[in-house]
Simulated scan of single mutants.
Amino acid sequence: MTIKNITTNDLRKMNNKEGLILQGCGGEVKEWVDGINDILTENGILLDDTKFDNVSVFQNEGVTCILYPFDNVHLDVGKLSMWRLQSYTAFAGTWLSDYVDNKLGGFEPEQNKAEKVKPDCELIGQDGNIFNLMGIASHTLKQNGMADEAKEMCSRVTSSGSYCEALNIIGDYVNITDGSEQSDDIDEDYDERQMMNL
């Protein structure tokens, strides 16, 4: 059995996960886990001889809570839902998703986390040669400890089919910013010449 101590911030990162949270679990965590496994097995909720082997313990609002994740267990979810409602006064059981939404303000958006990773890179106003822009973006990534991403970006850019596609690829890795506050568009003839250079 694995018992892991986590924080409420860890819970907010569990997007696309589900589990049962029991609140007010004082005493030995192992006794709680063994007891709940026995109860759910006797009630025909845990199926195929599976049981909760990996649980997480966290504190919130002065209360000890245990998360029983649904990974690697076979459950009769309908029966579990009924048991959760019937035993609420004893265990204050709730779903992970409901707990995070109602008590922690919701899960951290995955999209926002991805956007935070992209460093700012002043490319607007620079020499528009795609290899120059790629070099600047690569340098920015390496400065931010993202050497693997820099290598991947360069590989994708050099195998792209057009100047516009190459710019879009660079934009996947860095936030393209304007260091000179000048955002004149590159003319179409220049685009054509750059395509020839790829």
Rank of each mutant, 00 (worst) to 15 (best):
S183F: 08
K30A: 14
S81W: 01
I186K: 00
V157S: 10
Q182P: 00
I170E: 05
D53C: 10
S180F: 07
D48G: 02
G105T: 10
N37A: 07
Q86T: 14
E188K: 10
K13D: 08
M153C: 07
V73G: 00
E192M: 06
C164V: 11
S180C: 02
E61V: 08
L141H: 09
G26D: 13
G179I: 02
M134E: 12
Q182L: 06
W95I: 07
L167E: 01
C25Y: 04
L123M: 03
G62I: 06
D185K: 06
M195Y: 02
I21Q: 07
L198K: 11
T8S: 10
C164Q: 11
T41Y: 12
T2R: 14
S81E: 07
I39C: 03
M82K: 14
T8G: 05
D185A: 09
G44E: 09
N132I: 14
F58V: 09
F52A: 05
T140L: 02
I124C: 05
F70P: 00
A114H: 05
K151F: 08
C164K: 09
P109K: 11
E18H: 11
E192D: 08
W95H: 13
K113G: 12
N197I: 11
V63E: 09
K103F: 12
D38H: 05
L123A: 04
T89W: 07
V57C: 12
L85Y: 12
T158R: 14
C121I: 09
E188H: 07
G44N: 14
W83K: 01
L11P: 03
S160L: 09
K51D: 00
Q194C: 04
S162Q: 10
G35A: 08
S81I: 06
I21S: 10
I21L: 09
